[in-house]
Computed example of a mutant assay.
Amino acid sequence: MLDDVDRRILRLLQADPAQPVPELASATGMTAARVTRRLDRLRADGVLMPSQAVIDWRALGFTVEVSLRVTLDKTVPRAFDDFLSAARQVRAVIEIQTFLGRVDVRLSLIARDLPDYQRIYREEILTLPHIADIEALMTVARLKYDESLPL
């Protein structure tokens, strides 16, 4: 599906996503038009996702990150759907993942400080429907965060 030129373009973009097409063309030894066609194809094939603004929430004063592992009451037929629908409405939740196994859902949430987290937990998380068990894991340090692929 990907040839060596595609991989090279993707590696260059991972290193510097804001790199303009003329620089990509120069680095790959191709014309800007050919690079543009390849980028368009990579986007059309779903390999290259649309650009988005990535905001560092720590720079905005959020100092607490918590991972909540939630087990749902599986005796309720719509427990998953009801829970996920309600969890999407909690503004502090920045990521929702579902799993197979004892833990059904992981919520990642951010808060300004511990009192803010406690308020969110009591007023918004504990009121979510069909929770059978919940475990909170507070992030102490992020040792590695890298979304680049080994191309």
Score class of each variant (00 low, 15 high):
residue 21 V to D: 01
residue 91 R to C: 01
residue 104 D to F: 05
residue 103 V to Q: 04
residue 13 L to T: 08
residue 84 L to N: 10
residue 28 T to A: 00
residue 49 M to S: 15
residue 122 R to M: 04
residue 33 A to F: 07
residue 141 A to L: 11
residue 43 R to F: 03
residue 94 I to A: 06
residue 54 V to D: 07
residue 91 R to L: 07
residue 106 R to H: 05
residue 100 L to E: 07
residue 119 R to N: 08
residue 32 A to C: 06
residue 102 R to K: 05
residue 144 K to L: 14
residue 108 S to Y: 10
residue 27 A to V: 07
residue 82 D to C: 02
residue 135 E to G: 05
residue 131 I to C: 02
residue 82 D to V: 00
residue 118 Q to N: 09
residue 8 R to H: 08
residue 135 E to V: 13
residue 114 L to I: 15
residue 80 F to Q: 08
residue 97 Q to N: 13
residue 105 V to K: 04
residue 32 A to L: 01
residue 86 A to C: 03
residue 118 Q to S: 08
residue 65 E to P: 00
residue 32 A to H: 10
residue 55 I to K: 14
residue 35 V to Q: 04
residue 15 A to M: 09
residue 6 D to L: 04
residue 113 D to I: 03
residue 102 R to N: 09
residue 28 T to Q: 00
residue 27 A to E: 11
residue 127 T to E: 03
residue 149 L to Y: 12
residue 47 V to C: 07
residue 48 L to V: 09
residue 96 I to Y: 10
residue 67 S to D: 10
residue 2 L to A: 08
residue 75 T to E: 12
residue 19 Q to P: 02
residue 46 G to N: 12
residue 64 V to F: 06
residue 34 R to A: 10
residue 51 S to Q: 13
residue 43 R to W: 04
residue 83 F to Q: 01
residue 26 S to A: 15
residue 45 D to P: 03
residue 62 F to T: 05
residue 102 R to H: 05
residue 122 R to T: 14
residue 149 L to N: 07
residue 25 A to I: 12
residue 88 R to Q: 14
residue 37 R to C: 01
residue 123 E to T: 12
residue 72 L to V: 03
residue 59 A to K: 09
residue 34 R to S: 05
residue 116 D to I: 11
residue 59 A to S: 11
residue 88 R to E: 07
residue 144 K to E: 11
residue 135 E to F: 06
residue 77 P to V: 00
